[in-house]
Design a protein around this nucleic acid. Structure first.
Length: 214
DNA sequence: TAGGCCATCTGGTCCT
DNA sequence: AGGACCAGATGGCCTA
């Protein structure tokens, strides 16, 4: 029941993700048995200290051991734990790679200038959100104008954002992206086509072409 | 050098 | 039991 990103059923190592896989080789992930949770813990060095783990140790202490199952040596248990952790790490890495692949795919369909710096993850999500909203409004305007052919004087300012946020295009990058200079709002302000086309609440569909988003 | 972004590891929780 | 998902922690890289 795991929704797969369409078209990306398998792990794709993308430009982004293949950039750096320092990949603290699994063998490096050692399990020093008495590492206290330290704020300066070194990477891959903490691991679950035999029982407690790095944080909230008490819980692990609850872990049942022994019982009526066949006794396993401490060594065997440790090996098993490490093996499980390693597999979990692999899966988690894989999962994140999938997520990144999906994000890359999303970047691929968003209008950007070739020389634009790659959108960050959060920028990508925000931009996609706003972009979808913009396209939706475009369709609405088109519909509206078709309708207007039969009934006069469509009124402006009817646009509304999906979330009930302000309807003007100035909000194209809000409410979710109002932050710093790296936000899509800032980086896209240099796209006069987009903002130009979108800053007016009263557009005729003919003036809003897809190229306006580029 | 501080801050942002990212990849990875890790333990917890939920689900099958 | 094991996998998926999640959030916290940590260190590396980059840029202003």
């Amino acid at each position: 029941m795991t929704p797969q990103p369409s078209g990306a059923p398998t792990v794709q190592v993308t430009r982004e993700t293949e950039r750096s896989f320092p990949r603290a080789s699994e063998d490096e992930v050692t399990c020093p048995t008495s590492a206290p949770p330290s704020p300066t813990r070194t990477r891959g060095n903490c691991a679950e200290a035999e029982e407690g783990g790095c944080r909230g140790a008490p819980r692990k202490l609850r872990a049942r051991r022994g019982g009526r199952s066949r006794p396993k040596s401490e060594l065997a248990l440790s090996k098993q734990r490490r093996s499980r952790r390693k597999k979990a790490n692999d899966r988690e890495r894989n999962r994140m790679h999938n997520l990144n692949s999906a994000l890359d795919a999303l970047r691929g369909v968003l209008p950007t200038f070739p020389d634009d710096a790659k959108l960050t993850k959060i920028e990508t999500l925000r931009f996609a959100h706003n972009y979808i909203w913009a396209l939706t409004q475009t369709l609405r305007i088109a519909d509206h104008s078709l309708y207007a052919l039969e009934s006069p004087a469509p009124h402006c300012g009817e646009l509304g954002s999906p979330g009930g946020s302000p309807g003007d295009w100035g909000s194209l990058y809000s409410p979710v992206s109002q932050a710093g200079s790296l936000s899509p709002a800032a980086s896209l302000e240099e796209r006069p086509g987009l903002l130009g086309a979108t800053s007016s609440a009263c557009l005729s569909p003919g003036t809003l072409a897809f190229s306006d988003f580029l």
